[in-house]
Amino acid sequence: MPQITVDYSERLADGFDRPAFARDLHTAVVDIAAAKPPACKTRFRRTEDVVVGPDTDGHALVHVHIALLAGRTDETKARLTEAVLELLRQYVKPAEGLVLHASAEVRDLDPSYRKFEE
């Protein structure tokens, strides 16, 4: 915990500093949501096809999903979401002519969530 997944358009691969984004995102999750640094895990999933409205060209997407153990207030989740969007502004530089659509959500993990480390 937290489980972080970042879906991003393939067209952003060269303009998205993913390691720096993850490092600063982990810091934000620790500072805002009281997570423990070693517990922060982020995976990036590159998406090949993106369609926005009727357009198949000229758009790129980034969506960040953060799943936390229950107990954070809605205000804390909103602060974290805003921090994520600010980090995306800092670390995603789309190629000329691309419109970037960035979004984030913070949700509670289901009570059935379990994990192990070996």
Rank of each mutant, 00 (worst) to 15 (best):
P37N: 02
R18M: 13
L98M: 01
D108K: 04
T47F: 07
V84Q: 06
A78H: 11
F116P: 00
D49N: 12
I4G: 00
T76D: 13
E96I: 05
Q90P: 02
R23I: 03
I32Y: 07
G15P: 03
S103P: 05
D7E: 14
R23A: 15
P38G: 09
G71Q: 02
A102Y: 07
P111N: 11
R45P: 00
Y8N: 04
V99K: 15
L69Y: 04
L25K: 05
S103H: 04
T27M: 12
H101R: 04
K77Q: 14
Y113A: 12
E96P: 05
A104V: 06
L80Y: 07
Y113G: 04
L12Y: 08
G71C: 05
F16V: 05
A83L: 05
G15V: 02
E48G: 09
S112H: 14
L100Y: 04
E75P: 03
E96F: 05
A104G: 12
L87H: 06
L68P: 00
G71F: 00
F16W: 09
A83P: 06
A104L: 09
A13G: 02
E48W: 00
A35C: 03
L80Q: 07
H101T: 10
R45G: 01
E105I: 03
T47Y: 05
A39F: 02
G58I: 01
R89F: 11
H59V: 09
D7V: 03
T81D: 04
H59Q: 11
L98E: 02
D17F: 08
R114A: 13
A102G: 11
H63P: 05
P94M: 07
A60D: 10
I4Y: 00
A60E: 08
T42A: 08
A78W: 07
I66C: 13
H65N: 10
P111Y: 14
D24F: 05
A20L: 12
R89Q: 15
A83H: 07
E105W: 07
F21H: 03
A83E: 09
A78I: 06
L69T: 09
K115W: 10
V84S: 04
I32G: 01
